[in-house]
Amino acid sequence: MHNVATTHDEGKGQYFWVWGALLILTAVEVMLAYRQVFQPLRMLEVLMVLSVIKSALIIGYFMHLKYENPAMKWVLMIAVVTCLCLMFIFFPDAFRIVHLGVR
């Protein structure tokens, strides 16, 4: 407990920075969607990258995973890796179906 407490107590300002960064990233996402800057597929890619950055900030700082034991980090990586693998299977497949012309 001791090491956990000491690494965090100076970090109050850090939480406000993370919160600000998350709000700014959200604003960027909304602006991209509203201006329709990209084609839908490129848009999906950009939004997913921004969302992964946001989730990394939340998991790392708000959920304190940054300060956890390496064993814990690696166990939790299983879920992230599984979801990313599924994403790289499902999204290209869905895109392929559009191009096959299936209605």
Partner: peptide, 20 residues
Amino acid sequence: WHFVDLVWMFIFPLVYLMST
């Protein structure tokens, strides 16, 4: 609580922003 927030970070772009 943070996890619930985290999930919304994916629902918001995928559901709302992709169907604007």
